[in-house]
Amino acid sequence: MRVYIDGVGLYGPGLDSWDEGRLILSGQRPYERRNMPPAPASALSPNERRRCGTTVRLAIQVAEEASIRAGIDATVPSVFASSGGDSEILHNLCETLATTPKDLSPTRFHNSVHNAPVGYWSIAHKATASSTSLSCFDGTFAGGLIEAAVSVLTETGKTLLVVYDLPAPEPLHSACPFICGFGVAFVLARKAGGRSIAALDIELTGDTGNIAVMGNSDLETIRTGNPAARSLTLLEALALDRTAGLKIPYLDDLAVYLTVEPIVHRAQ
């Protein structure tokens, strides 16, 4: 499958935006690991921002950045992918149900569903476009990328892909030991346009060896420590702005081979 990347959004520890991430991943600026504060998510109204959790804010942050870069509006369908969903809220609900009284917060219950982030996205932009929310454990980035690419090629022409995860509190953390938060978003298109930065060929392969890794040990720790950060090797290829082939993990018996070809826009 060939699709085109029209916009990127990024939010991770020491990676506050795609602008900053591109400089770091291309080697123009050293990487410095920093704590990741809750994402500003300025697209949300004040009432929605205080009501939603940090997972929603992370998803909205990268979705907004990628959309602005790609110049799309909210009529573009979306795929939101997260391995664990809002684990902080799930933890809180479990804790409440294990104690007395068992009265759940209506807002937290509302936010606990896996498609809550795209709900907030739709409210923020009054969007009525279709959306898909999925989870695929450690293969969530590859799963989301395939779903979004199929959507682009068979239905929509353009699709917003948003992938995000935050570490869970204990005891959920022991089951899904994500070491940090990470969010990434891409706007994928069927045809190359004025904002396209690269062509991306996506191919499933049964050869799961030789998964691409990061040269920087801190970034490699992040790549393996959060399912959304499995996107880092693709982001690095985009930042370096040169043709590259790389494999990303998907399922136990399947991987995804990506070929990245930068698109050079000639000055008018």
Binding site: P101, D103, L104, S105, P106, T107
Partner: peptide, 12 residues
């Protein structure tokens, strides 16, 4: 939505 939240919390 805030009203609903307050109703639950006042009871709790």
């Amino acid at each position: 939505i805030d009203a609903l939240e307050l109703i639950v919390e006042i009871e709790k």
